[in-house]
Write a protein that binds this DNA or RNA. Sequence first.
DNA 1: GACCCTCCTAAACGATCGTTCAGCTAGCAT
DNA 2: ATGCTAGCTGAACGATCGTTTAGGAGGGTC
Lengths: 209, 209
Amino acid sequence: MASAADPAPAPAGETAILQAAIAVMAEHGYHGTSVRDIAVRAGMSPGALYHHFTSKQEVLATIMERGIKALLSRTRSALDGAGDDPADRLRALVAVQVLFHLEDQRGTLLGTSEVRALQEPVRARHLAKRAEQQRMFDAVVGEGVERGVFTTPLAAEASRAIVVMCTGVAAWFSPSGRLSRHEVVQRYQRLALDMVGGPVPDGTRNGMH
Amino acid sequence: MASAADPAPAPAGETAILQAAIAVMAEHGYHGTSVRDIAVRAGMSPGALYHHFTSKQEVLATIMERGIKALLSRTRSALDGAGDDPADRLRALVAVQVLFHLEDQRGTLLGTSEVRALQEPVRARHLAKRAEQQRMFDAVVGEGVERGVFTTPLAAEASRAIVVMCTGVAAWFSPSGRLSRHEVVQRYQRLALDMVGGPVPDGTRNGMH
DNA sequence: GACCCTCCTAAACGATCGTTCAGCTAGCAT
DNA sequence: ATGCTAGCTGAACGATCGTTTAGGAGGGTC
């Protein structure tokens, strides 16, 4: 019964290593983090790490692959349940993108700044998945423009800016800050729709002065 | 006469070290770059580096301090010459922010991902200057909203998103790509004004369907 | 010619790096 | 009891790290 009640069950083995690596690498970067740093934080000796991973590089690769896979999966299922309206679909994309990077801020910092530390061919695979993620935004924005729901002449630029802006929340958000996660999502949905020239709630449209 | 004609005069001494450090550190990060890497690329032996800097850390500090100082200086003088209209002032800020990060893409990558490698008190000073830079955007957006030129209810979020979006160009821009620097500037000016609910040229305003 | 200063090289320093290895322990199957 | 395996410890390995040191080449000044 203790296992269900523990708020932080102090994970062991592979899970402990991955959590420790995310924490330490997010702060000091891949090359700024030693295998000893990771092992100590995971509560084991340096050698024990090599029972679960073949190298420090494989630890990073595992973190990055699972992270991008989870993001792509959540993004796809959000689109699946978003209906047909381009504005709804863009709101769904933004909600997932913002929430994902808010829930795993340290993982996001790793994902954005340590791609360069990945060795091939993992690095190329990772970049391909990031491009795939971007393409889902491009498609939703592009369809909105085709249908006349979005009026921006800068679909490609707006789409890229939206992804960058949503990823950026991981760099400044604080759970004890002024805004809740939900409020951040709502505001970024509005900003995204403003960028593509999409519809916003009655009485609050920009330029209605 | 050769010195004036050489396209790349192969800098020596301190300049060579700084240029080499920016190039190598932008690719592999501070901890992923050795003093030997920097020295070899600068055309000297590792020990020679210590005639110009007291440590590898001081090399990074010099790069970061000069970079943020140049950005702040250019931003301030852009505002000085921008006139009174909030839209013009925001366009001036965006132009500087985009151009600066396009002209020194590698320096930008360093500036955004290696702040964590800076030691105190340089790190704190650097973060303070970054906050100062953000505050200049906040002030321009805030005044535009006060005057009714910008209609967004999300001034703070839009301001932060604009800075993030403009900084982000360093990550994807290619001089041989589809867009010139000038075109990027113009499009990002438009995106920024869309985000704050500002005026855009006649016949192209969003929502005019 | 003597002196100094700038800039450099070559070699070496101790520390720390990623990784390996021999061996110990606890649990489970036979 | 015996054997097997998973998970771990502690010590050690060669390599590379940031930095220091001794000394030399070259140019300007008295």
